[in-house]
Design a protein around this nucleic acid. Structure first.
Lengths: 210, 210
DNA sequence: TAATTTATGTCACCGCATGACAGATGACAA
DNA sequence: TTGTCATCTGTCATGCGGTGACATAAATTA
């Protein structure tokens, strides 16, 4: 890897660190791009060459974790039911996060804390989630053998997204807490849902695109 | 009602109409506050005296409908289970919308269409939803006899929120379609969930606040 | 009509975000 | 090492969103 590339990731990480630091101490809105740039000794214009917006830098780590989740999901064997694959991917994501070096894990937790206490960022995170939702629905539909326009894959994804939010948003206290919370939620789900609920049952189609 | 008040609601509605019109024809981001204000013959500064942001005017109608839902929910008898009360409130909300005068219903549908095709607004709508979520969880906890910090009321609300999103977001084509979609989703839910799933079962507590 | 309240317009200002251009710096071949 | 090229960066200018301050116009009340 050349010097140029190394410098780039270095600047990028520095910007993230500076941003998180300032956001957490002064508050998200109270922090300006100029302050972040100044702390990294970079022009404000350069900030926007690394991140498309103020929100972007705050959500870059959560966005990464979502990408990890999606990658895990895509890698699950077809033998698993949609819901089983989704649950396993969630567990795998937490595991992956835990295996990273401590520095990066700390960054992630900082970001999680920040998002948790900033409504605007919570909304942004939801937006990320929704952008991925289509991909998720498509994959679930494939596993079910139904159409992505069908109500059933959307149903499964919606249910799971709700569960994911509970444990994801409840875990700025550490990845262990988050993992435990996930277990609790999945236990609750097992108790509430009928076996095979996520498989393509008889009718209930009523396609109709959104 | 005095002239002053009448003028205010008039201006407000004019701003909403102008905004929706421009948003739908030019696109949300491509439309400026100045354009909206100009169309109503009002200074841009005045726009912000009626709406706190560009997003606010676009989401004012969806926000209203959420308020209606919450009001309906608060009015449901305690004899209903949490999930039953939530479902009934959703139906009632659609009914209330349908009973309004056609002009206002048209505005609502316009807003729904707009939100549907604008990711930023979709996210904003989710933010509104999440702001109300606490209230919802508290009410469900009361009905269950559990603590709002408990996982179970959160679980019920999350599940229902997912279902609500499916039918809500699928209905820019009219309130009738939206009602039918709701029926389909609830049917699917009845088939997937065990009877009494939304009641406070044995343990599964593991409180832990977010 | 006079006094008070309140809505509106004007002006100034800040922060976010983007395009354009010039200069600095690393990459690479001779 | 040197020269060329690609790319990163800083500076400048601009537009839009959003807010505070103040004066003016309009409605309310007496």
């Amino acid at each position: 890897m050349g010097l140029r590339e190394r410098k780039k990731v270095q600047t990028r990480n520095a910007l993230i660190d500076a941003a998180l630091e300032l956001f957490l101490t002064q508050g998200y809105e109270a922090t300006t791009i100029d302050q972040i740039a100044a702390r990294v000794d970079v022009s404000p214009r350069t900030f926007f060459r690394y991140f498309s917006s103020k929100e972007d830098v705050a959500l870059s780590l959560p966005a990464d974790s979502q990408e990890i989740f999606l990658a895990e999901f895509a890698a699950r064997p077809d033998s698993e039911s949609p819901y089983a694959a989704l649950s396993a991917s969630m567990r795998a994501m937490i595991g992956t996060l835990r295996d990273k070096d401590p520095e990066e894990a700390a960054r992630f937790l900082k970001a999680r804390r920040l998002v948790d206490e900033t409504p605007a960022l919570l909304a942004g995170q939801m937006r990320l989630l929704m952008e991925n939702e289509k991909r998720l629905v498509a994959e679930v539909a494939r596993r079910q053998g139904t159409s992505p326009d069908d109500l059933r894959p959307q149903f499964v994804v919606s249910i799971f997204t709700g569960l994911g939010m509970i444990c994801y948003n409840a875990g700025p206290e550490g990845l262990d807490i988050m993992a435990r919370r996930l277990d609790d939620v999945l236990t609750l789900a097992d108790r509430s849902l009928r076996p095979g609920w996520d498989l393509a049952a008889a009718d209930a189609s009523s396609s109709a695109a959104g």
